[in-house]
Design a protein around this nucleic acid. Structure first.
Lengths: 209, 209
DNA sequence: CCTCTCATGTAAGCAGTTACATGATTTC
DNA sequence: GAAATCATGTAACTGCTTACATGAGAGG
């Protein structure tokens, strides 16, 4: 399933699980902790999703149960076929890049707000970004980036978060200023003028009746 | 619906449609063109989604049909209630920020690749970002950012794209270098050592049998 | 014994994608 | 009159979220 005649479903959750199990065997419960902490901002997943995916991956023989623990605990490990699929995904499947940014979507519609409201919104975005940046910075400072593979690539991912939030803050502040720019003022004047013209026409139409 | 006792569904598609109709009346067909061009990287939507949402919004009286054209064309306009809902969403609902970045997800698992493969992957990411940046730059250069509200905020959104792609390129290049760093080399050595120890233990176990 | 953590699962529903269906109008 | 474009919709399916259900073991 999922791979039929070269046509491949996206489904990165599957590969997130495979990737985590490639590092070390774990139970669904263990994986959830990782999803809630490390992967929360990259690929969030819910408990029911993870347990469901583990069963599907087992059926597809990409992972297997290697130990049964107390309380029905099932420890999974990646299989050879699973490693191959993970490798294929990493090397051959084109990443799609980030999509669906609802903060940025709002920017397209800031014209319906007053300039003051729009400016406030953008400065709030800047602050949110700054707070997120500070949080990432804390993690970067507190963690001991020692001799582990996870650490090297985890650090690289964290650096992305740092740069992303810094970029966001700078952009939002710049955008807030831009609203007060000459260009924006001219645009607002033009819109107002059009509205006045339309109003005038409407009045004339009414007078004719 | 969708708003029950302060509990609000996310559903930004609804607000994307409201936002577009707030600027000027349009048909589903018109909106699709906007979704495919301007909003493609911010909030992609399919044709069936848009037509479905238009009907739902009409039922909810947030928009209304203002004209019937040829070929069954229905032109929609936003209502007062729709404008209020759009305003509420813009001001009161917290943006969630970007989520689900499958390129970044891959970074977490680069440990399963050889250093060379990982480096290649990151440099490909850098190139992709550079290409996207060039594309945004072309739009920025070619468009006449004249006196229109859409232009001001469209330009601001475009600037986000420019900064985002520039950040991505810089980060990916930095990351590619980081793999050759001392820290990474030490991590790889440590992993190898552990594997050798495990191998040794396995051999000892077999000898005992 | 009681509570907290560990541990796995099911069911309902919404959001998003893909594919299919249909027909009117314009353009060459 | 054929092809391209305009225009709206439905159906099936996948992915994701929310809420519910259940129970075993550990620690006070």
């Amino acid at each position: 399933m999922s791979i039929v005649e070269g046509k491949v479903a996206v489904m990165s959750l599957r590969h997130a699980v495979l990737g985590l199990l490639a590092e070390s065997p774990a139970s669904g419960y263990d994986l959830m902790k990782t999803f809630d902490v490390s992967l929360a901002h990259v690929w969030p997943a819910t408990q029911s999703q993870v347990y469901g995916e583990l069963n599907k991956l087992t059926d597809a023989q990409l992972i297997e149960v290697v130990a049964h623990g107390p309380r029905g605990r099932k420890e999974y490990a990646i299989t050879k076929a699973g490693r191959a699929e993970l490798h294929r995904w990493l090397i051959e499947v084109e990443p799609t890049g980030p999509q669906r940014h609802d903060g940025l979507l709002r920017v397209f519609f800031l014209g319906v707000l007053t300039p003051l409201e729009a400016r406030t919104f953008l400065l709030q975005q800047a602050e949110r970004a700054a707070r997120a940046h500070a949080l990432y910075q804390e993690v970067a400072d507190s963690s001991d980036w020692d001799e582990e593979m996870v650490a090297v690539y985890g650090r690289i991912a964290l650096e992305f978060g740092l740069r992303q939030t810094a970029m966001m803050e700078g952009w939002a502040k710049w955008a807030a200023e831009e609203i007060n720019s000459d260009r924006a003022r001219r645009a607002r004047d033009a819109v107002k003028e059009q509205e006045e013209k339309a109003e005038e026409q409407r009045r004339e139409m009414q007078e004719q009746e």
